[in-house]
Design a protein around this nucleic acid. Sequence first.
DNA 1: ATTCGGACCTGAAAGC
DNA 2: TGCTTTCAGGTCCGAA
Length: 279
Amino acid sequence: MPELPEVETIIRGLSPKLQGLEVSSFKLLFLGVLRNSDQKILEKLKGKKVIRLRRRGKWILIDLDSNLSLVCHFKMTGQFLFCPSERPVDKHTHFILSFKDRMHELRFRDVRKFGSISCRPTPEVLKFPNLGPEPLRVSFSRFRKLFLSRRGRLKNLLLNQSFIAGIGNIYADEILFEAKLHPLTPVSMLGEGEFSRLWEAMRFILRKAIEFRGTSIRNFRDAEDQEGGFKNHLRVYGKESLSCPRCGKEIERLRLGGRSSFFCPRCQEEKNKAVESER
DNA sequence: ATTCGGACCTGAAAGC
DNA sequence: TGCTTTCAGGTCCGAA
């Protein structure tokens, strides 16, 4: 569910509340949520203070003192809830972190159980060997170079976390619409002007989505259980058969590999078609 | 070597 | 009304 803007929104909300809190205990309610670490290392969390929260792609990192970190991924439906300890625990809550002040808890909830938490030494957690650069940090020249030796369809590449980190299905469609590029465009056909349009579009869309605190279509809520406002600014995602906000033509839906792509067939004309029609 | 489908799970919404 | 099917913001794995 959550892509870069949603994860960023969660971290910005959670950071000031968690920083400095000392862990008093934890509850593991669904064992499957724990990956690549065992319960023993979780015991080490007790007595540790939260130093800071970080995001890398769609991953959330919670750094505690003594070089200990929690590494979390929400996948489709995971969420953090920071709430008063006395609030009843919702169904699908898999992990709870309690703090010394006894006032609040951090709860990890995930209906579909795809999400994960692991506990590791801090120096290890940034070793994501297969994670591409951050879209809001990568310079244009480095972004441009990422395409060297890459082939395939443009949208698939944007979704590939080892190419660039943090973009998912919603924002890939919105970015491609902004850049006026068809999702199936072979990357080998992109021209210089299109690379810079894509880079600008990526930054524009992701920044705007963060500004509006992410997109809530069905599941996403931030750590205070609030919805994100970017759903009111989506221009193509989920808009099949509605008219394009730019040219009025009907938005179409394309399915590749079980996932939907929404695009405007006029604003995002397919490149090989355009080439054919020029003959 | 890419690409595709299926798997992992649950529940809401749509279809009949 | 109620049963069945489809779909979902992610990623991994194995088979073409």
